[in-house]
């Protein structure tokens, strides 16, 4: 049901019934390694290319999510997903393996929430019983597409971010208990004229702020409604810049209720500059770490805002600015009856 200008409120309790979270070797040394279902030691995953490794991780995450919920492929109506690589081919090949009707998306690093929002909306409108959503990214595959060859010895500035190698899948279906998706806000493309592809957090911050403000406005709720507002991959610079913007809006946001996935995933000693990024960043942190914290009762209501920087290597070379987007879903944990 449409609420306000761009928010859907869900009444039929679409919920994340299970998740699959896969990571690479660098993530295994990170802060939240225990929240992964599967961690790989080999960056190549014994595949011939990094793109195939990314595809493999998505297939594994999907498999884990289905196993956990004990739902077979036949019971899933749609698979919605996407990634960063040219024409989202790794997701497409994974969709071939998964073998269910597929909707491919591109929203850069906001793909995780975009797919979750669409899945919840379809289920809320009785368009499906179970939808698999997911995304994957691979550090080396993203490096070679957006930056330089992986072994090139160029110096990265401190504003750069580290693309997460991993994959996060969420299986969405109706449920009375668990993490219920209560609403979703669709983002606008926001462009503040920044041009540095080595500072994507700084470029994406206004998009996150715009979506958060519109979400609160559409639902007519106060920021204190949420125990946590978690952004996708703003990194250190984007996180601080967006917090400054939110403070300017006088919505009464507190520092401790505002976190970023890109700052949660790695250890401080890991050389990730400004923080983690990539489509998998928001997916692995939220579907793993944050949902576990919700299950433990630490958090009840979470607003999950994934941010995406929608530039291409060509648009950057043509001196275009970096257009950004952020989508949000609110997740509320309903504890089950004790049996």
């Amino acid at each position: 049901m449409l609420v306000g200008h761009s928010t859907w409120k869900f009444n039929q309790q679409p919920a994340i019934i299970s998740t699959g979270v896969v990571g690479g070797p660098f993530e295994a040394n990170g802060k939240i390694a225990n929240d992964f279902d599967l961690l790989h030691e080999d960056l190549w995953l014994e595949q011939d290319s990094f793109e195939q490794a990314q595809q493999k991780m998505l297939e594994e995450a999907a498999e884990i999510a289905m196993d956990k919920a004990q739902i077979s492929k036949g019971q899933i109506e749609f698979f919605i997903g996407g990634d960063l690589i040219n024409q989202i081919t790794p997701t497409t090949f994974a969709a071939k393996t998964i073998g269910v009707p597929y909707l491919g998306l591109f929203s850069a690093c906001a793909t995780s929430v975009e797919s979750l929002a669409l899945a919840a909306s379809i289920i809320d409108n009785n368009g499906a019983n179970h939808i698999l959503t997911g995304t994957a990214s691979h550090n080396a595959a993203a490096e070679r597409q957006f930056r330089y060859p992986t072994e090139y010895g160029g110096q990265k500035p401190p504003t750069a971010q580290w693309t997460v190698t991993g994959s996060g899948c969420a299986l969405v279906g109706k449920s009375e208990t668990g993490p219920i998706i209560t609403s979703a806000t669709i983002g606008k493309v926001i462009d503040m004229g920044l041009t540095d592809p080595f500072n994507m957090g700084g470029a994406m911050a206004p998009a996150a702020v715009d979506t958060i403000i519109r979400h609160l406005h559409d639902l007519k709720v106060d920021v204190s409604h949420y125990d946590l507002i978690i952004t996708g991959d703003l990194g250190k610079i984007g996180h601080e810049a967006s917090f400054d913007l939110l403070v300017e809006q006088n919505i009464g946001i507190k520092k401790e209720q505002y976190l970023d996935c890109g700052l949660l995933i790695y250890n401080d000693e890991q050389p990730v500059h400004s923080g983690g990024s990539g489509t998998a960043c928001s997916a692995v942190v939220t579907y793993g770490h944050i949902l576990n914290r919700m299950k433990n009762g630490e958090l009840k209501r979470v607003l999950f805002v994934a941010t995406g920087s929608l530039h291409s290597p060509m648009s950057v070379q043509q001196k275009e600015t970096i257009p950004c987007i952020a989508h949000a879903v609110s997740i509320e944990y309903k504890a089950g009856d004790v049996t």
Binding site: D191, M192, A205, I237, A241
Partner: peptide
């Protein structure tokens, strides 16, 4: 608006 944001961003930029 963009100028204002770029100033904020600049302040936070490492």
């Amino acid at each position: 608006k963009a100028q204002h944001y770029q100033a904020i961003q600049k302040k936070n930029e490492t």
